[in-house]
Amino acid sequence: MKKINRRSFLKGGLAGTAVVAGTAVSKESSASQSFGGYPDSMGVLVDFTKCVGCRSCEAACNKEQGLPAPDKPFDDMSVYDEIQHNGQKRRTSEKAYTIVNRYKVKDREAGPVFRKFQCNHCNEPACLTSCFVNAYTKTKEGAVIYDPTVCVGCRTCMIACPFYVPAYSYSSPINPVIKKCIMCYDTRLKFGRPPACVEACPQEVMTFGKRKDLIKIGNARIRSNPDKYIDHIYGEKEVGGTAWMYLSDVPFDQIGFNTHIGEQPIISYVKEFLTIVPMVLTIWPALFTGFHLLANRKEALKNEKPSGKE
């Protein structure tokens, strides 16, 4: 039998590490490919040039989702003047999964821009990947839904979401959970019907359809009215693409959109690091224990020899 000396052990160890590292890298590169969304998933194209700020969508959402009564009637336009304690406009909450905000834009003939927002239902949702109890699901229809019975209320998804959408039921002292728009999945989307807000909108600000068709429609609108629209469909590519996409006649950063959000899904920022974690946890302990034993081998032999003589 071949005697294992220090040199051959180290050689074997290094080669083994290289092989494992190699397979880890190839796995990682295949995992890095963007998911890009389910092929026939649905979406909504929101055209801000058409919104008149009537808040019918907010009322419809409230009714459909069985949310608590609002603080002010849905025909009360004074909400547009509300500024929250953090100096920002209204945002989604446990009582409102969708919000319309007003943005005054200089020299816009049609007056202020009304911007509806809600969960954008990302193709690769950061909330989903950040959730350690797997409460979130991206359905084939395109909705990002969640199971409140699983939610432990850790609020990691609130931090992970690049759009600051998930809200928290702070009013519930016993079992606070995450609250957000589910694109009316349970009651409508599952059956091929549009979300309640889309159906309620008098101006047809929102167009419901297959996401791939909506991109075609959005591009056609820009093409047929190039002087009116900003040449960009927000959400087509942002953070890996979202089911809800937006058209505007004013630059998106002027109506509260983050235009520096990038086109990478949020998961891609941590994917590489996360692939290394199992390798570090499994190989490093064995490898360094081996190094430690080898380094102390002579010491151990020394201690053994005297006992052998006796």
Binding site: A59, N62, K63, P70, D71, K72, P73
Partner: peptide, 13 residues
């Protein structure tokens, strides 16, 4: 009722 307005207005906060 849908708009929580008129007779269905919420109590003022």
């Amino acid at each position: 009722e849908f708009f929580h307005a008129g007779n269905f207005s919420p109590a003022p906060v």
